[in-house]
Amino acid sequence: MTVEISYRFGFDAAHHFDHFPEGHPNRGMHGHSFHVEVAIEGEPDPATGFVADLGDLEGACGDLRKALDHKVLNDVPGLAKPSLENISIWIWKRLKPRYAALSRVTILRDSAGQSCTYRG
Protein backbone atom coordinates (compact mmCIF):
# COMPACT_ATOMS: atom_id res chain seq x y z
CA MET A 1 0.00 0.00 0.00
CA THR A 2 1.62 3.24 -1.16
CA VAL A 3 0.60 6.58 0.33
CA GLU A 4 1.76 10.14 -0.18
CA ILE A 5 2.28 12.62 2.64
CA SER A 6 3.02 16.28 2.10
CA TYR A 7 4.02 19.45 3.88
CA ARG A 8 3.37 23.01 2.71
CA PHE A 9 5.18 26.23 3.45
CA GLY A 10 5.26 29.72 2.03
CA PHE A 11 7.76 32.47 1.44
CA ASP A 12 7.81 35.96 -0.02
CA ALA A 13 10.67 36.95 -2.29
CA ALA A 14 11.73 39.17 -5.15
CA HIS A 15 13.42 38.34 -8.43
CA HIS A 16 14.10 39.66 -11.91
CA PHE A 17 14.70 38.16 -15.33
CA ASP A 18 17.34 39.90 -17.42
CA HIS A 19 16.49 37.93 -20.58
CA PHE A 20 13.25 39.89 -21.07
CA PRO A 21 13.47 43.05 -23.21
CA GLU A 22 13.61 46.52 -21.65
CA GLY A 23 10.15 47.60 -20.54
CA HIS A 24 8.84 44.07 -19.93
CA PRO A 25 7.28 43.87 -16.46
CA ASN A 26 9.29 40.76 -15.52
CA ARG A 27 12.64 42.31 -16.40
CA GLY A 28 12.64 44.66 -13.41
CA MET A 29 12.70 43.64 -9.78
CA HIS A 30 9.32 42.36 -8.63
CA GLY A 31 8.05 40.10 -5.90
CA HIS A 32 5.67 37.24 -5.26
CA SER A 33 4.20 35.18 -2.49
CA PHE A 34 5.23 31.59 -3.19
CA HIS A 35 3.72 28.42 -1.76
CA VAL A 36 5.62 25.15 -1.77
CA GLU A 37 4.31 21.63 -1.29
CA VAL A 38 6.79 18.78 -0.86
CA ALA A 39 5.56 15.19 -0.97
CA ILE A 40 7.02 11.88 0.13
CA GLU A 41 5.61 8.62 -1.15
CA GLY A 42 5.96 5.13 0.21
CA GLU A 43 4.60 2.42 2.44
CA PRO A 44 3.97 3.22 6.09
CA ASP A 45 6.55 1.72 8.42
CA PRO A 46 4.87 -1.16 10.28
CA ALA A 47 6.42 -0.05 13.58
CA THR A 48 5.44 3.63 13.41
CA GLY A 49 2.71 3.86 10.80
CA PHE A 50 4.65 6.72 9.16
CA VAL A 51 6.10 7.12 5.67
CA ALA A 52 8.32 9.85 7.13
CA ASP A 53 8.36 11.98 10.26
CA LEU A 54 6.38 15.11 9.33
CA GLY A 55 8.00 17.02 12.18
CA ASP A 56 11.42 16.33 10.71
CA LEU A 57 10.18 17.35 7.24
CA GLU A 58 8.74 20.55 8.70
CA GLY A 59 12.16 21.37 10.17
CA ALA A 60 13.96 20.72 6.88
CA CYS A 61 11.46 22.91 5.04
CA GLY A 62 11.89 25.61 7.70
CA ASP A 63 15.59 25.75 6.84
CA LEU A 64 14.71 26.18 3.15
CA ARG A 65 12.16 28.86 3.97
CA LYS A 66 14.82 30.81 5.89
CA ALA A 67 17.10 30.61 2.84
CA LEU A 68 14.38 31.99 0.51
CA ASP A 69 12.03 34.22 2.52
CA HIS A 70 12.40 37.97 1.98
CA LYS A 71 15.40 37.46 -0.28
CA VAL A 72 16.25 38.46 -3.82
CA LEU A 73 16.16 34.97 -5.31
CA ASN A 74 18.72 35.84 -8.00
CA ASP A 75 21.24 36.31 -5.17
CA VAL A 76 20.58 32.91 -3.56
CA PRO A 77 23.41 30.51 -4.54
CA GLY A 78 22.10 28.21 -7.27
CA LEU A 79 19.12 30.43 -8.18
CA ALA A 80 20.60 32.96 -10.59
CA LYS A 81 17.61 32.28 -12.89
CA PRO A 82 14.80 31.91 -10.33
CA SER A 83 11.95 30.59 -12.46
CA LEU A 84 9.30 28.37 -10.91
CA GLU A 85 11.05 25.48 -12.64
CA ASN A 86 14.45 26.28 -11.15
CA ILE A 87 13.08 26.97 -7.67
CA SER A 88 11.38 23.57 -7.60
CA ILE A 89 14.61 21.85 -8.73
CA TRP A 90 16.64 23.84 -6.16
CA ILE A 91 14.35 22.65 -3.35
CA TRP A 92 14.41 19.05 -4.66
CA LYS A 93 18.21 18.98 -4.66
CA ARG A 94 18.29 20.08 -1.03
CA LEU A 95 15.66 17.63 0.23
CA LYS A 96 16.35 14.50 -1.84
CA PRO A 97 19.56 13.47 0.01
CA ARG A 98 17.62 13.48 3.29
CA TYR A 99 14.37 11.98 1.93
CA ALA A 100 15.03 9.19 -0.55
CA ALA A 101 11.28 8.73 -1.06
CA LEU A 102 10.72 12.40 -2.04
CA SER A 103 8.18 12.20 -4.85
CA ARG A 104 7.48 15.78 -5.88
CA VAL A 105 8.01 19.47 -5.21
CA THR A 106 5.29 21.86 -6.31
CA ILE A 107 5.72 25.64 -6.35
CA LEU A 108 2.62 27.82 -6.61
CA ARG A 109 2.04 31.53 -7.21
CA ASP A 110 -1.62 31.58 -6.32
CA SER A 111 -2.11 35.26 -7.17
CA ALA A 112 -1.06 34.53 -10.76
CA GLY A 113 -2.71 31.10 -11.00
CA GLN A 114 0.67 29.54 -11.82
CA SER A 115 2.45 26.42 -10.58
CA CYS A 116 5.25 24.02 -11.41
CA THR A 117 5.76 20.44 -10.22
CA TYR A 118 9.13 18.69 -10.30
CA ARG A 119 9.33 14.93 -9.82
CA GLY A 120 13.08 14.38 -10.11
Rank of each mutant, 00 (worst) to 15 (best):
C116D: 00
D75L: 12
I5F: 08
S88C: 02
E37I: 08
A14I: 04
D45E: 13
S111L: 12
A112L: 15
H35N: 11
G31R: 12
V3Q: 13
T2A: 11
G78R: 03
E41V: 10
S33H: 12
Y7S: 02
P97C: 08
A80S: 12
D63K: 13
G49I: 12
H19R: 12
E58A: 15
G28R: 14
K96C: 01
W90D: 06
I107M: 05
S33F: 03
L95Y: 07
A47Q: 14
S33W: 02
K71E: 14
I107Q: 00
V76Y: 05
M29H: 09
F50W: 15
C61M: 09
E41M: 13
N74H: 06
G49A: 10
R98F: 01
C116W: 09
V38S: 05
L57Q: 00
N74T: 07
G62W: 06
D53K: 09
Y99H: 05
L57I: 14
P44F: 00
L84N: 10
G59F: 05
D110Q: 11
R8D: 15
N86P: 04
M1T: 14
P97V: 07
G55H: 11
R8Q: 14
R109P: 00
P82R: 00
H15C: 09
H24F: 06
H30L: 03
A101W: 01
F17R: 07
A67Y: 02
V105F: 01
D12R: 07
N26V: 00
D56A: 13
L68H: 06
V72C: 10
A47S: 12
F34H: 07
L95P: 05
A80R: 15
S88M: 00
K96P: 05
V38W: 02
Q114I: 04
N86Q: 11
D12S: 15
G62S: 10
K71P: 03
Y118E: 03
E4T: 15
E4N: 13
M29C: 07
D45K: 01
D56N: 09
E22S: 08
A80K: 14
H32I: 06
K81A: 11
W90K: 02
S115F: 05
C61Y: 04
Y118T: 00
R119C: 13
S6K: 14
P77D: 07
V38Q: 01
D69M: 12
Y99C: 04
R119Q: 14
W90C: 02
C116Y: 13
H24A: 02
H16R: 15
I40Y: 02
L68I: 08
D45N: 14
D18E: 15
R65A: 12
I87E: 10
P21L: 05
A67I: 08
K66Q: 15
H24I: 04
D75P: 00
G62E: 04
P77A: 11
E58I: 06
S103M: 04
F9H: 01
D56M: 09
G120H: 09
R119I: 11
G49D: 11
D53Q: 07
P44V: 10
L108V: 07
